[in-house]
């Protein structure tokens, strides 16, 4: 019987002490349990009614109970007392955190990421190729005949007779077509090199992204549709565009696309040349073993630096490669 009472008081004490929120209620609780007329004292009074054998066992249980209650009350009291000495500890959610500083990707990478994401949305894969390229892939298979003035369009770093630093990303077209039968629907970003004097407008190294689509029944009309969709996503929905005939050895017919750039907000006026494109030249299909009667295709290419310069109003290409921290941190 006394056993049940001990269990009941223990339970009650645990429930009650959890609800205590100030020192006064804690004192009341102490009086309720530990004072001379308190609950625990009254249990000790009941010991005398027990048998000689039961007395020590229950005495021990009651002592444990009293110690437990005493300890709990003391520690709770200490908690309240120390809390009342200083300001109440509270979490201020409006304080800034100690986040380690976050860096950023280079603005050219960010620009390319945006271009990639638009074309990936239109079902293009992404392929890459080496910067050190064979003369064959860089020129010959792209229908640049040896001794043709078209070779003057790109000032080349020659490594030796057979290898060059690629002057455009177009050789990746050759690599992709050599590795895979049509359909091919891919963009090919990368770094390219030109042997040009370094100035605010040209650098010996820059980045391009190339696009290629080969399948049965690919037409110039689809090329226009694809690039116009890209331009509107990238330069803004109100962008005006035009396609002008041009010349590249690896496309026939060839075109250049000009846009009016709304993102540039008056920084640039008139038509801006943004990319070159065209229908893949049948000679290129010959070099990679595609049947030019069965398949048609289009290709396009654009310079990332040029696009980023237009979009962000950057007037000197060299700042991209100076890696001045003040520049890098702006993006």
């Amino acid at each position: 019987m006394l056993d049940d009472k001990i269990k009941k008081i223990t339970g009650e004490f645990h429930r009650e002490i959890l609800k205590i929120n100030d020192i006064k209620k804690l004192e009341n609780l102490r009086i309720k349990y530990l004072s001379r007329n308190g609950l625990i004292s009254s249990l000790f009074n009941e010991l005398k009614n027990l048998s000689k054998e039961e007395k020590p066992e229950f005495g021990k249980l009651l002592n444990n109970l009293r110690n437990m209650v005493t300890n709990q009350l003391t520690s709770t009291r200490q908690k309240f007392e120390s809390a009342s000495q200083g300001p109440t500890e509270k979490i201020d959610l409006s304080l800034p955190g100690f986040a380690g500083s976050i860096g950023s990707k280079h603005i050219l990478t960010q620009t390319l990421d945006e271009i990639k994401s638009i074309f990936k949305g239109m079902g293009f894969s992404v392929f890459e190729g080496p910067e050190l390229e064979s003369d064959y892939n860089n020129f010959e298979a792209l229908n640049f005949a040896p001794d043709h003035p078209a070779r003057d369009m790109q000032d080349t770093f020659f490594i030796n007779k057979d290898f060059v630093l690629r002057t455009h990303t177009s050789p990746v077209q050759i690599r992709v077509m050599n590795s895979k039968k049509p359909p091919v629907r891919a963009i090919m970003p990368g770094r390219v090199y030109r042997n040009e004097a370094v100035s605010s407008r040209s650098y010996c190294m820059f980045h391009q992204v190339e696009g290629l689509y080969v399948d049965t029944d690919v037409t110039f009309a689809e090329l226009k549709g694809t690039l116009v969709s890209f331009a509107k996503q990238f330069y803004g929905e109100d962008t005006k565009y035009r396609f002008r005939p041009s010349f590249f050895p690896f496309t026939e017919p060839s075109a250049e696309m000009d846009v009016t750039c709304y993102l540039c907000n008056g920084k640039q006026t008139g038509w801006l040349e943004v990319l070159g494109c065209g229908m893949v030249d049948p000679n290129v299909f010959g070099f990679v073993g595609y049947d030019s009667e069965k398949f048609t295709g289009y290709a396009f290419g654009m310079g990332i630096e040029r696009i980023a310069m237009l979009k962000y109003g950057i007037t000197d290409i060299r700042v991209f490669f100076d890696n001045d921290f003040r520049f890098l941190k702006q993006f």
Binding site: K105, H106, L108, V126, E128, F321
Partner: peptide
Amino acid sequence: SEFAGKVRNIAAGLGFYEMINNPL
């Protein structure tokens, strides 16, 4: 280009700023 892209993202998250250098 996916793997290099992930590396760049993680590095930028760790506080690195990406540089592009002239290899020549």
